[in-house]
């Protein structure tokens, strides 16, 4: 109740964080506490993969993430465009830091070579069977397998080696694009674009085969 929570407007935040030493220290500390509460909440409530870590470890983790984030926030104050509350914008940066670090930890042992080591290539999707329909439309099952066959062929024939590798890691292993990018000497944004180009090529290919995209969508939406 008697918390020292100062409610700052966006302008207050910017002024304080760029103000004299005392103002600045005060604002940074408020922001730090706020972000740590938020990040800790996320780590403890939403991350079942971290449930074996104690409160202390999660607190430490939250502190480390927020420390990194604060440096980024203070370095990038001039990019804040005021489209949200300042604290929401700062939370976005802290979230990105936390998630990226958690991904790095989780996939630290992952290698793209596993893809080939397991002998799995993308055209093999035709050997996967998507959950047989539980509803009254068993014929959809066969239709799905047919489309998968076409997609598998298109992946083999229409995509570049890089597109195939990225798509395989993404779809087969469910690896976040950020982590795939790190292993392909590129960045997340470029990898998104690479996958976008791949999707576009595959879409065009399916359309050339006379398939309507609405049909494909309904066929796979519920799968």
């Amino acid at each position: 109740m008697s918390e020292r929570t100062v409610e700052r407007t966006n302008d207050d935040w910017l002024a304080d964080l760029q103000g004299d030493e005392l103002q600045r220290a005060d604002a940074v500390e408020d922001l730090r506490q706020r972000l740590e509460r938020g990040v800790y909440f996320y780590l403890s409530r939403e991350r079942s993969d971290l449930s074996d870590r104690g409160e202390e470890a999660l607190t430490q983790m939250a502190q480390d993430f927020v420390q990194d984030a604060l440096l980024k926030i203070l370095d990038n104050l001039d990019t804040f465009r005021g489209e949200s509350r300042f604290t929401t914008w700062a939370s976005k940066i802290a979230t990105r830091v936390a998630i990226s670090e958690l991904r790095r930890m989780r996939y630290k042992d992952y290698s793209l070579e596993y893809l080939t080591a397991e002998g799995e290539t993308m055209p093999d999707i035709t050997s996967l069977s998507i959950a047989p329909p539980s509803g009254p439309q068993p014929e959809r099952y066969t239709e799905r397998q047919d489309v998968m066959q076409i997609v598998g062929m298109a992946i083999e024939n229409a995509l570049t080696e890089r597109q195939r590798t990225a798509l395989s890691a993404y779809v087969f292993d469910g690896v976040p694009i950020e982590e795939i990018a790190a292993r392909m000497d590129t960045n997340r944004n470029a990898l998104y674009k690479l996958l976008h180009d791949a999707r576009l090529k595959l879409k065009n290919h399916l359309e050339e085969q006379g398939l309507s995209m609405d049909y494909v969508m309904t066929l796979f939406e519920s799968a």
Partner: peptide, 29 residues
């Protein structure tokens, strides 16, 4: 198999122009 199905559904919904991750991030807050 579910991820493959999900990908095929994404292929069908692919737009000529899509925002990239950075453009999305700018608006995420």
């Amino acid at each position: 198999a579910n991820r493959v199905a999900n990908m095929i559904s994404k292929i069908a919904r692919t737009q000529e122009h899509e925002l990239d991750c950075e453009e999305c991030y700018e608006h995420l807050d």
